[in-house]
Design a binder for these strands. Structure first.
Lengths: 131, 131, 131, 131
DNA sequence: GTGGTCTAGACCACG
DNA sequence: GTGGTCTAGACCACA
């Protein structure tokens, strides 16, 4: 379901947090959906349960996840809704995110146009899949 | 010149490494250019000189930078040339980079289309600037 | 287990790196074996833990060692397998290594023939031990 | 004439010192021969003149080189003669030197036999060249 | 004054 | 308790 990479210098907890936010933001997980248990996800990702628990706790703190005692952990809100500034105020952050991606692409030998092409191809594939 | 952020969970050295690769990849730094001295950059970024030295050493190890003992540190090659597999083999990596960017954008409330629009706007601005 | 010498002009970390490569290359350490902890080895060798950590990190970077966060450091591959060019491309390096050894031997008053004799004697002893 | 390598972690001065000892020990330089001037050698090796001067001074200190004011620097004695213990006492050191070489060879994927073969080949070539 | 090496010691991520 | 990151600061090699 989610992916983390041992060799990435970004801490595992940060990777997992981003992955869950992504899944919720893109609709792979919807409000009300149940997440894997801490222990199950730890086993799946081959990381320590404490690391998973820490991420769940943090996401609960910010309101994205919610826990029902004895039942499990569920999606409670969209990260975008949480992000208290809304789209307008986040425009600058989007630029930063894209800057960073273009930087990494460049260091792999790809231009902004290559990135654009990649995105357009993704959209085409998406359309074909959906009919 | 470069930027690093204390609060980012990504280690400072990884941030700086990416920033330098970016600068070289995008032509802000060209082959033969001298980089700031280890100590100067440490002062500018308000981080420890050892952290900067570690980054320079790592980038030298992979061939992007070169140092002349007692003289300074210089750009030696483009990251894209170093990336020894070439574009073909790096296509998978591009996908990963873009996946990650879309994930972050999504958690800010932006869709893949928003990212696409952003990139297209950048291209328009670039064209207007150049002619 | 390993040895480093303060008075050798070769940096401690380079000495240790060579010693570990040697141990792995010669089977004193096998794939999967755990290495001493960073702190323990630092104590044993009477050097700083950071110096040991630097060596482990470097050997991990090239794939000889692998670390499991919070668990320890393990042998992951043989240096000879890593040396990605294979024997053919490493022949020139072998010449350099032998040049250097002959140089040192010569400065101690030994000729290439003395070195040859020494090697032949080693082989004889080895055979007697095994046969 | 001599060679030094910027990327070798061994300090330049140590590399040069070894190279000169080697040349004298192997007869490429004989007693009475003049060495290049400090400045000339610095230019040839693309290193700083101070580094060369330091090496000459050290070798003069131990008696291998001698300086005649206003004339130049000359070979004065064989390193092997200087090495005050003589061959017998240096046998242990030879073993160490060879151990180290075998270690490096092993990490390149070569066995002790490969090293032996290499040495034997060198002897053959030497014989052919000399008749 | 430049980069390189090393130390001592703090704090974090992870198990 | 393990490795990872970072800091402060010393001293060395080199130009």
């Amino acid at each position: 379901m989610f992916k983390v990479d041992d060799r990435d210098p970004m801490p595992l907890y940060a990777q997992l947090e981003r992955a869950i936010k992504f899944a919720v933001a893109t609709g792979q997980l919807n409000i009300g959906d149940q997440l894997p248990t801490v222990r199950q996800l730890a086993v799946d990702l081959r990381i320590n349960a404490n690391t998973v628990a820490k991420v769940y706790a943090e996401l609960e703190r910010v309101g994205i996840l919610g826990t029902r005692r004895g039942v499990g952990t569920f999606v409670q809100a969209h990260p975008a809704d949480i992000s208290r500034n809304g789209r307008q105020a986040n425009n600058g952050k989007l630029d930063k995110v894209i800057d960073r991606a273009l930087a990494e692409a460049a260091s792999l030998g790809f231009s902004a146009n290559d990135v654009l092409d990649n995105l357009i191809n993704r959209r085409k594939k998406e359309k074909m899949k959906n009919g």
